[in-house]
Amino acid sequence: MTYSSFLKAEFLVLWRRKQDVFNALLFFIIVVVLFPIGVNSSPEFLAPAAAGIIWCATVLAVLMALESTFKEDHRDGSLEQLVVSGLSLPLLIVLKIIAQWLVVMLPLLITMPLLAEMLYLPSSGFWALIGTLLVGSPSLFFIGVIGGALTVSIKQGAMLVMLLILPFYLPVIIFSTLAVKAAQAGLPYSGFLAMLLAMSLLSLVISPFMTAIAVKASVNA
């Protein structure tokens, strides 16, 4: 096995699991669409709340997609093969997250202009929102994958992943929505983006090692 053959197989598996990815995307769209219908559809309410709505929906969609990250690999024994492959397990995990991020986040980003328009998000806020999603969402994946690895041998682990991981997502949601609000008010928001980038980089450094420990423990369980 090589890193490139691993990455290629990851993309192929994700492509054939498109139902899961589609479910996450559908869930994201439904949450965003239902919000104005259920709460308030006036532009005065939706424009300031848009970033928060989109980020909360993104977090839930990502959690939904991440819960099954290692489950299939654990069932068929390929997770064990990764552990004993002689390749760096943290690096394999980084590659797995990159593949997941691309497959889950790209469709979400593609739907964003339409949803932002629907929520009356002004263009200044829209570009800030895209910026926060680009620099902040990797941290969602790097943090969330730890929960996925910890609960890999638990059949109904989705709720546990949510309880374990959600508190760590709060700073990302707070800084992202603050960045969009600052942009909407015409204030500089690069500081918030820098904070989000720092969170993503910090999780990139820490998460693969923690996930590798959790994966090894799950394989041994």
Partner: peptide, 22 residues
Amino acid sequence: GHSVGVKQRLSVAENIRWYCPD
């Protein structure tokens, strides 16, 4: 091992290329 480490969603050839890419 007992669980043979073969990916269910990949084809036979893809599984082999995953493990022996060269």
